[in-house]
Design a protein around this nucleic acid. Structure first.
Length: 449
RNA sequence: CGGAGUAUAGCUCAGCCUGGUAGAGCACUGGUUUUGGGAACCAGGGGUCGCAAGUUCGAAUCUUGCUACUCCGACCA
């Protein structure tokens, strides 16, 4: 992509409405534009990040045996009356009336609808287990939206729903999602720790929140330090096998949010030098809620004895529009964002230091083509601006590597690679630059781990 | 919903106290010179001062009402 033709409205000043660093950086880097309280437009650079996050989630969900679909944003109130939640949900639910005066709502979640789909088509235990998910915009009319897309009213969420014959099998479904979440967040460059959590208004008795430690996090969290560098299950993990040992391994070390913390247990099971008390951002949640919806909505299957039983369900959410700022909270410095390669909007910023110079242009155009041909996503800064402005933009938008090509180096057939995270610079020959970048980037894509 | 604040150019802000016909920096347009960390100079364009009512000869400025946005709290992927 040529920056001269791209839409990247970076801001030099800090927008006054933004308080926390991720919100400020998302606005300054031209990723977002606020349209109203808790409502944001995702500009091209931001949307690319959202798509990267989405792709990783889809790959890992599919791998774990879930099937992607898409449900509407608008739902009929009738379904919610059946489950009893139409009255219970309160003002957070945006209620809408259509032209025929029918009560509708903008979905804050989809348990009712997915259960309705299930009951319409599934009759036998032989069709289980089943896990269906979608990635769709939701709306919750928060009393006070804040922190940009970290807590917006409209938000993009992946929600998966599992259906099983009994608690034991539901637990297996839960475990599959648990393991897939470990991999999903790791691939995004996040260290997300599963913590015991309250099940909230949705109910249930088995639940973990996946928490990213960050000073700006909304919840207080307590955990064992060893959880921070625990190895993640690899891509060859067999989702058909018994995953309980992996889940047990992860849940054997103490980790709980402030709502669930048992101080006595925390202090007795975690050595003092391993105790972490910090703040965290919840990026995902898995929970089992049994027959809470299948009972009232009549989602039953016939078991192997010919008996009708309500299915045991679980649901598994990831807030995509929250993950993006969470990644920034965990990856930035004074100059701007530092994207992990796997979610970076582009992998390389190619910086042409002197667009007016014919030789310099020729060299840069060649590098641009070579990078593109090598399958590297490159944003080519071909704008007619001073070097300082280009460096500042590149640092701000946080592409993992900068390839800097100017007359001074090109005279000796040399270009410079800057590592955004470390600030490290290496000089390489023009011919070797693409291969060197590919060698750096390839493993960091985390798509084969 | 309770508490606190803000609203003036695309952005960040000054002007308001003490009323007199609107400013700066950045950004933008044209030109010249520049070019390895947000370049310099010259010349320009751009504002119903959030909205409405009131006081006044006169309101960005004072009064009242409304709206939007932000922060703290309760609530939440």
């Amino acid at each position: 992509m040529r920056l001269s033709r791209y839409f990247l409205p970076v801001l030099r000043d800090v927008p006054k409405e933004a308080e926390i660093v991720s919100h400020r950086l998302m606005l300054r880097a031209g990723m977002l534009k606020q349209e109203a309280a808790g409502l944001y437009a995702w500009l091209p650079l931001g949307y690319r990040v959202l798509r990267k996050i989405q792709a990783i989630i889809e790959q890992e969900q599919d791998r774990a045996g879930a099937h992607e679909m898409l449900m509407p944003t608008i739902q009929s109130a009738d379904l919610w009356r059946e489950s009893g939640r139409y009255d219970a949900y309160g003002k957070e639910m945006l209620r809408i009336t259509d032209r025929h005066e029918r009560d509708m709502l903008y979905g804050p979640t989809n348990e009712e609808m997915i259960t309705d789909i299930f009951r319409a088509h599934v009759r036998s235990y032989k069709d289980l287990p089943l896990n269906l998910y979608h990635i769709q915009w939701k709306f919750r009319d928060e009393i006070r939206p804040r922190f940009g897309t970290m807590r917006s009213r409209e938000f993009l969420m992946k929600d998966a729903y599992s259906f099983d014959l009994d608690l034991g099998r539901a637990r297996e479904a839960y475990n599959r999602m648990f393991v897939s979440y470990l991999r999903t967040f790791y691939r995004m460059g996040l260290t997300a720790i599963p913590m015991r959590a309250e099940t909230g208004p949705i109910g249930g008795d088995l639940s973990h929140e996946f928490i990213v430690l960050a000073d700006t996090g909304e919840s207080g969290v307590f955990c064992h330090a060893d959880l921070l560098d625990k190895p993640i299950p690899t891509h060859d993990v067999d989702y058909l096998s018994d995953l309980q040992p992996i889940v047990d391994d992860w849940t054997s070390l103490y980790a709980a949010t402030e709502d669930m913390i048992d101080m006595a247990e925390f202090e007795s099971t975690v050595p003092e030098d391993k105790r972490i008390a910090a703040r965290g951002i919840e990026v995902g949640q898995v929970f089992y809620f049994g027959t809470k919806y299948s009972d009232p909505l009549g989602a039953t299957v016939t078991d192997d004895e010919g008996k009708e039983v309500a299915v045991h369900m679980g649901s598994y959410g990831i807030g995509l529009t929250r993950v993006a700022p969470a990644i920034i909270e965990a990856n930035h410095d004074d100059d701007g964002i530092i994207w992990p390669v796997s979610v970076a909007p582009f992998e390389v910023a190619l910086i042409n230091l002197k667009p007016g110079d014919k030789d310099c242009n020729t060299a840069n155009e060649g590098l641009y083509q070579s990078l593109t041909n090598a399958g590297i996503e490159v944003l080519y800064d071909d704008r007619d601006l001073g070097a300082g402005a280009k460096f500042a933009t590149a640092d701000l938008i946080g592409l993992p590597y900068q390839l800097i090509a100017g007359p001074r180096g090109l005279k000796n057939n040399e270009v410079e690679i800057k590592h955004r995270r470390t600030g490290e610079r290496e000089t390489v020959s023009t011919d070797a630059a693409v291969a060197r970048l590919l060698a750096l980037i390839e493993p960091e894509r985390r798509d084969k781990i």
